[in-house]
Amino acid sequence: MSIKNAVEIQNLSKSFKTGLKKRFQALNNLSLTIKENEIFGYLGANGTGKTTTFKLMLGLIFPDTGDIKFWGVSFQDVKTRANIGYLPENPYFYSYLTGQESLNFTASMFDMKSNIKKERINEMLDLVNLQHAKDIQLRKYSRGMLQRLGIAQALVHDPKLLILDEPMSGLDPMGRKDMRNIILSCKDQGKTVLFSSHIISDVEMICDRASILSNGVLKKIITVDDIMDRDSNGWEITFKGNADTIESINSKNENFILKQLSAKDIFLLKAIDKKIAFEILNIIQKQGAELLSFVPLRISLEEIYIATTLKKDQ
């Protein structure tokens, strides 16, 4: 079975008027494809055009040029939004409504039967752990509770595509973990998730692919699996050993760096070549020294991000 594209963005550009004759180019000729059932991370610093892209996708603002398609249908057709759940950055709701009233109002924007609507609202309150606060007005909700309600309203109509704008911002570590779990469970349910973030570790942890946006220009698309498989930066070994172990290792006279750490008998060894790394591992074990860690040195998404964004500035 071939994988369909959930989102196809072609040559999308958007500029905003900033003065009488001045315009700010927020997005420049963006082309991007997001496959069905993938988690796609949209990386970029603040003000690089992430939210602009989302607003264009949802018809909140209009592009200067370009097109966006959801499962082959243009974004101009409002019906496409029946398949999209959107969580804006720092979501705001009608503060005079209770949690349940708010979800009910959101659900009424979709053609849902009232019994299904009730059921879904209940499920969502359970999912985001707000059942206890469903009758409390939103003005009394904390920042984290509002964010959770935001994800509930984005999911209430069981959309095929989720667009989350900085879903982790303002959340405590526990809240971030919950959010990651919700995103991952959406993937398990067959949904496609597109989310923006400037926190790279979040993207690295859960995304299938990620793109790097800088000053409105798409710089790179990375498959996160590729990063994980890569071991080009070498291997790092830490061990507890004595003079004999060190002598045996040094006698190999190979290409590696050996350093003694602050604790007297703990050593750190870096080897570029995989074969050498495993030979040294062998020596450590033969000498009866204690192996503390043996890890491949991968290039992180953060390093790629920094390298990519620096390159464009040059």
Binding site: L58, L60, F110
Partner: peptide
């Protein structure tokens, strides 16, 4: 101002 409009107009509504 309160950005509530984003959550409404991003739904399938004209």
């Amino acid at each position: 101002d309160k950005r509530t409009i984003y959550t409404i107009l991003s739904k399938p509504i004209h």
